[in-house]
Every structure is written in C-alpha cells, then in structure tokens.
C-alpha cells in the first residue's frame, strides 16, 4: 500500500506539514478558524523531529501487521481492507495500550477527547495533506517498492 515517506535530506523542518495536517483534521478546514477558533483544537497527526541539520516528518506506517491494532483492548483500532489503520473514536477508551505498543510512536493522546489520535492518510484525498503541502517534496506518498530513489541526493 502507499505510505508517506520522509526524505531527511530535503526536510527543512518548516512544519507546514503539521499545519496542514491539523487543518485537514479540523471541522472548518480553514487555517485561521482551525487554529484560532475551533475548540477543542484539532490535532495534527504527524510530527516533525529536528536536531541540528537533521530533520524529518513522521507519521503512522500503517503496518502490514499493526501492533497497535493487535494490542487495542476495545477493538477501536482497525486495519481496513485498504490497509489504512484507523481509530474509531467512539470505541476508544483512552487506555493508551496502543501508545505502549506502537514502535513508531505514531499515536498521540487526544487529551480533549480522551481518545487516541493518529494519521488516517486523509480519507477522501488522493494525496495526504502533509505530502500535498510540503514545499520541498520532503514527503512522498509512495509504494514501498518505489523507495529506491528516496535517499539519493546527487
């Protein structure tokens, strides 16, 4: 399945992926309203890590055998036919077993709602918002087999 992959060598840690992820997961889908008006504030579903010249954005891998789904005690986490791992918020009880299980650290606590929050690959969008809005093509939406070119700088 297609996933979002980061290209460290061109990520400039601008965090626009985070900004647009948050907006994509807001009710208004409007930058100003999403940040300034909506309460509880919508959450971004990916994170940018940065130290010195090294930086990259990271989100759920939608693992073929997802530890989070297997660990979920209520069945709130599911892996669909399309491979996307989703949280059913009405089933989630905020026990954070998934946070304990996910080796990617890709699930965040939505403290306002007490449920797990994670990348959903932007359902309905052809390209996830983070990828679409990365100004430097540092995020690519690709099949695993297409990865060979990702690490080339020359």
């Amino acid at each position: 399945m297609k996933r979002v992959y980061a290209r460290e060598e061109v990520c400039m840690a601008c965090t626009l992926c985070e900004v647009h992820c948050l907006v994509q997961h807001s009710r208004s889908r409007d930058l100003v309203k999403a940040f300034k008006r909506e309460r509880p504030r919508p959450l971004k579903r990916l994170r940018v890590e940065e130290r010195g010249p090294l930086s990259f954005a990271f989100q759920c891998r939608h693992c073929p055998e997802p530890d989070c789904v297997y660990a979920c005690v209520t069945g709130a986490l599911t892996k669909g036919e399309d491979g996307v791992v989703l949280v059913q918020e009405d089933k989630c009880i905020g026990c954070w077993t998934c946070i304990m299980a996910c080796p990617y650290g890709s699930i965040e606590r939505d403290l306002a709602q007490g449920v797990a929050s994670k990348c959903d690959l932007c359902p309905g969008e052809e390209i996830p918002a983070c990828v679409k809005n990365c100004p430097n093509d540092a995020l690519v939406f690709a099949e695993e087999g297409e990865l060979a070119w990702l690490s080339t700088t020359t």
């Binding site: 530890d67 954070w96 946070i99 304990m100 299980a101 996910c102 080796p103 990617y104 650290g105 965040e108």
Partner: peptide, 14 residues
C-alpha cells in the same frame, strides 16, 4: 511521560 513510549517498547523488542 507515556507519550510515544512505544518507541522505547520497540527498543526493548528489537
């Protein structure tokens, strides 16, 4: 401190 602690779980497992 629990946030993203699966990263550490992964260190234990791997």
């Amino acid at each position: 401190a629990v946030d993203r602690c699966g990263v550490a779980t992964g260190c234990i497992r791997d």
